[in-house]
Design a protein around this nucleic acid. Structure first.
Lengths: 393, 393
DNA sequence: CTTTAGCACTCTCAGCGTTAGAGTGCTAAA
DNA sequence: TTTAGCACTCTAACGCTGAGAGTGCTAAAG
């Protein structure tokens, strides 16, 4: 199972080349392109060994090799050289995000756009999951007799609203009375814990007649619940058509069919993120004081190679799913790189990049990591207005 | 330039077959499939004539004929038999739309979904253009010190809101004061006529210090202006990959590239709709009393054919653009069927279906017409709550 | 004058064999 | 352990061919 340094170097070179050209990589070409200090015959032997061990595949005997899922996995986990964005790129992302308005949803949309533009693949950003957020305020604003706007304010200044129909006999002061009653009772509760019953019993304190109350309370409840609706911002889906792996129309169709059911992908990403949260809890419990730096395999100077070694690695902030590791039909020729973003101190949302399995992992990872950080910071800015002003208050 | 009945029948048959099969249509097949009372040789002669006149095209001498833009145009304008939706289809559409919430934007999104589902093509529905709508109310709601929600209510109960940052020294009563001042001055004005100057001078009446006012007024202005932001709901773009004309990856790429710049299509649709409005004004002026029924060419009993005739036709509610008639690069192999929807009595929004030039025009037209009517009715329902309650008031 | 049967002609497309080239695995020598 | 050399394999591109679908034209029939 372990690879010596030369094998690692060859594996990396094969994958680098394949990512660049999308063509099976042969030994001769590999040697000349990378100026290896050995002959093609040697490389050939090593490549046969790598195939034996499942890192590479061959379409047919006389073709070059292409990486397998396992090969990519090793590449991503151990062989990838960390790369930083150029200052220009950083500035561009930063500029695009911070030019932003005060709505978290706008920020998210922009994050999605910039993520796709920077990487050249399809980006997905999910709206925050706010089930565990506390209700901070609930306002109702009379738009006209018979219609009102329910405004739900959550932790960290997230605001959601919804236009509802109400009995037309209700006047603004009654409406405000109801809103205040709900707010008084429910402020501080988590969205998950708010039910139609809690809302109703809060509203009844107004002692207004049921004929006025019932509909309003129901609508208020729905408005609160829908604050947690999962939405997906997707950008750059069409870019995939340029990549050679999607020249085959059926591949492209599978891909688009899957993407068009964006709820499924969103659900999947949330699942992944949840799994990871669990793992983290376990890991933290097991090794409380571990805090090593993420250590990358240094191939050329390290004799044994770190692949089989016992070095603990810091978990990176992103997750990579490669090919068949994605358990969604139609995406098995793709890879998915995901990360999360926060509002306040809690992970609330997920974002990701979907591209061909042959994606530029380095570029994607550095971009998504940077954008995650930038997004977190921007969200914190919005939230900090609130924090400051609460202090003053 | 005029076609006799047999030519019309043949043209129709060729197009019907081509729409169904996507294969060039030959004379022999045509005769057998449609049980024409003439021989294939006769049909062959007529087809040659139709090609001569530009209604049909031939890829190469020994291939069947395919319709040209002009052929489709004639087909759509004169040869198409009106078709009604089945009661089940009607019910399905109706059910899907009227299950709907009280927000126009939800209604529009649903219209887009149902339009694509029913037709099998790509649907586009644009948000209402409200430039000519009057401002009815302007509210500002303090979310927390330093942040407020600006709520803009327009004619017919359209509500838009926007979260903004404000000086944190402002308290709710001052905020309300400002909102009231703006509302008092600007209510009844059309969005188009509201400028930063009008907003500012309205706000100054509060006599609050500029340090508090300036930012709020600016944000209020922006919120009012953005109520008119054009957005596009697109559905079913991926369905195109199933059609034979998009098996060619480059065609598909062109198509997706164009669709991904959805602002361009939206703009184009608005342009079309504007042109049409102009034409209508001219037409109305020219022939004030014309009100004939749309008369379809009845091919088999009418001797001269109505194609070259002078019969005035009622303008249908939809518009069809075929192939090159669409002046957008990348959509020249497509057709676009559009119509508009109303809020109150004014046309405010546009919707359309994009499909292959070989689309099932009959089906698309009957669906889009029905959905337009249903959408108008649903919007009126929302608006009528308001109308009723204003009466009571 | 219109229609139709018949026929020669055209063009595409699928199938097939051939070939060039890239890449491999193996062997034997360095 | 590495490498040069070589025979072998497989694909993809090319060109050729024949079948088939469709046409246009001509001449005869209605």
């Amino acid at each position: 199972m372990k690879l010596n340094n030369r094998q690692q170097a060859i594996l990396r070179a094969v994958i680098d080349d394949y990512i660049e050209t999308a063509e099976p990589v042969g030994s001769k070409n590999l040697v000349s392109r990378h100026a290896f200090p050995v002959s093609s015959a040697t490389v050939r032997n090593e490549m046969a060994e790598l195939e034996e061990q499942g890192y590479l595949e061959q379409k047919h005997t006389s073709a070059g090799r292409i990486p397998s899922d396992k090969g990519y996995r090793t590449y991503v986990d151990n062989l990838l050289r960390a790369s930083e964005l150029t200052p220009e790129e950083q500035e561009q992302i930063q500029g695009y995000l911070s030019e932003c308005i005060d709505e978290v949803s706008d920020l998210i949309r922009r994050a999605s756009t910039v993520l796709s533009e920077q990487t050249g693949y399809t980006s997905l950003v999910l709206t925050p999951q706010l089930r565990r957020s506390q209700l901070k305020q609930l306002k109702m604003l009379m738009i006209e007799p018979g219609r009102a706007l329910v405004v739900v304010v959550l932790e960290a200044g997230v605001v959601k609203d919804r236009l509802v129909r109400i009995p037309s006999m209700i006047d603004s002061s009654q409406l405000m009375q109801i809103a205040n009653a709900i707010e008084d009772s429910l402020t501080g509760m988590k969205l998950d814990d708010i039910t139609l019953v809690t809302v109703t019993s809060a509203g009844r304190k107004t002692e207004l007649p049921d004929s006025l109350l019932n509909q309003v309370l129901y609508e208020a409840y729905v408005a609160i619940k829908q604050a947690d609706n999962l939405e997906v911002y997707m950008e750059g889906a069409h870019k995939m058509l340029s990549y050679p792996e999607f020249q085959n129309i059926d591949k492209a169709k599978d891909y688009y069919n899957m993407l068009s059911r964006d709820g499924i992908i969103a659900g999947y990403m949330n699942e992944l993120s949840e799994e990871r949260r669990q793992e983290k809890i376990v890991a933290d419990a097991e090794s409380e004081t571990q805090d090593e730096q993420f250590e990358r395999a240094e191939i050329l100077d390290d004799t044994e190679g770190s692949l089989g070694g016992q070095v603990m690695k810091k978990r990176p902030a992103y997750m990579v799913r490669i090919g068949q590791e994605i358990s969604l039909e139609g995406l098995s020729d793709c890879s998915l790189v995901t990360t999360s973003y926060r509002i306040g101190d809690t992970v609330v949302g997920n974002m990701g990049v979907i591209g061909p399995r042959r994606m530029e992992y380095g570029k994607v990872i550095s971009n998504i990591s940077y954008i995650k950080t930038a997004l977190d910071a921007e969200i914190r800015k919005i939230a900090s207005v609130r924090a400051e002003s609460e202090d003053q208050h």
